[in-house]
Amino acid sequence: MTASILDGIVLGLQFGVLAAGLTLVYGLGGVLNLAYGQIAVVSGLVTLLTMEAGVPAVPAALIGLVAGGALGLIFDLTILQPVYRRHGEARVLLSLLLTLGAAFVIDGYLNWRYPLRGLNLRITGDPLVVFGVRMRMGSVVASGITIVVIGVLYWLFRYTRLGRAIRSVIQDEEGSRLVGIDPQLMMRLILVLSGVLAAIVAITRSMVAPVNVRAGFSLTVLGLIVTVVGGLGSIPGAFLAGLVLGIINSVASSYIGTFLSLIILLVAAAITIVIRPTGLLGVRE
């Protein structure tokens, strides 16, 4: 039981980071990015190709992060520009359709140019004993990185001027404009940050299991479900939902079997949405 809960936490932390990238973009700009998983995949692929070019793993992973951020920036500068000119649900829907198109473009290209490739960062080392359970080194390192990321996000949004500026845009776009914050610029920064988070997911995930070129869509869907369960726009909600769903998933899979566990995860998500349409920590507008 302890083992599967710990596995669930490892998985849940990654779910949380995955969802945080989506939920930030939604909370700030009312934009749903369906090409989010593809950003993760591209970052993973860039890391892989850089490593194949002879660069050591750590700098290669950093280049992967830069690639993720750059892709986020490209999205902001291109297909999201017409999206920003709309408001409310029309904006969400247009962003959803356009980023779906972008996801096809990336998927089509990757499947054509790099079929069956995948990033697999093997972390060697003896298993570490945590609470009497032997954890694989890859899981421990991945979780360590994820926890640091969560800490940095917390610090960024709680204590820095930039974080406060972003939170004020989430709360009231018009009001923040009045006090001299440029929502457009904040949105651009958040898209870069979201791209970097997607890259972090790809890299940490590849320490536990390979992330292949076809994983984009399922990463997006998983992120979307965790985001909605946590409450659209809420970062703490994203992490809470990530942990809850991660633990449900791995406990269910060790006791019931893999295929039913995914269904249990999905049903749990559906029940949460139906009972609390605003999500676990979401605020009703």
């Binding site: 749903l32 649900e89 969400v92 829907l93 959803l96 869907v221 979307l224 479900i225 909605v228 659209l232 079997g257 893999t258 295929f259 039913l260 995914l262 269904i263 999905l266 049903v267 998500a269 559906a270 949405i273 139906v274 349409p277």
Partner: peptide, 27 residues
């Protein structure tokens, strides 16, 4: 009944679609 918006209804139906696919694969 739960007056879910377009996105939430989309997610609920997407969850049903994924569950169906997994149920078919698993059973």
């Amino acid at each position: 009944r739960r007056s879910l918006g377009v996105i939430f209804a989309g997610i609920i139906t997407l969850i049903f679609a994924l569950s169906f696919e997994n149920l078919v694969l698993g059973a």
